[in-house]
Design a protein around this nucleic acid. Structure first.
Lengths: 101, 101
DNA sequence: ATTGTTGTTTCACTTTAGGGAAACATTTAT
DNA sequence: ATAAATGTTTCCCTAAAGTGAAACAACAAT
């Protein structure tokens, strides 16, 4: 019982359809391309710092918890604009990037 | 006449097939997703700072000048690992990214 | 004014991110 | 113990990145 940690009225509705029926097996394959930055950990830490669950973050960023999970576990490569969207909309923060020569 | 600015023996060979025959018209369409970071400018400036042409950068990074051009002009969204690869292999630098909460 | 250099755009094809729904696994309350 | 809550993994589809070759534009050099 009890709602989620925070103030989630709309989330409830959002959630009540996230359990159903099907599937299991191997693993996507993955690789996470090149030198696989630790983007997953970066996002994971930031999320915890804000005290959010994957589902809450997904809701705010307009995506799903399964997708967030994939990013945090480096199963999916992520586009810069996508990560930026998640950080801004979902965490209320902003992504900083620079090239060091 | 004259070679490129720098020391490009192999590049010459690489280049000598970059002009041929065909095509023209509109523009990809673009949009560059969300809040379109100024990744293009970031890369553009870094490239000039290293005194490289798009072709030289492309060669080092293992891609083509047309692709570099698209990134610099924000015509294509770029994946984090891709930008990272270009920065590291092509510019000998490294991409830094962080989340500010 | 012709050629070489650099950069932009188009066409076109392949791979993968983006995205969701559901099943499953695990941890946490009660 | 068992039922929520939270996270992971699978399946699967579509849109867009990734990629190259070629044509084109613009400027610089001779």
């Amino acid at each position: 019982m009890k709602a989620l940690n925070k103030n989630l009225t709309t989330l409830e509705e959002f959630k009540e359809k996230n359990y159903g029926k099907r599937g299991t097996k191997k693993r996507d394959e993955l690789e996470a391309g090149y030198e696989n930055f630790k983007i997953g950990i970066l996002l994971h830490d930031a999320r915890l710092e804000k005290g959010l669950t994957q589902e809450e973050l997904a809701f705010k960023a307009g995506t799903t918890k399964s997708y967030i999970s994939k990013i945090e576990n480096n199963i999916k490569e992520v586009r810069i604009s996508t990560l930026q969207k998640i950080v801004e909309l979902g965490l209320g923060g902003h992504l900083q990037l620079s090239i060091k020569l």
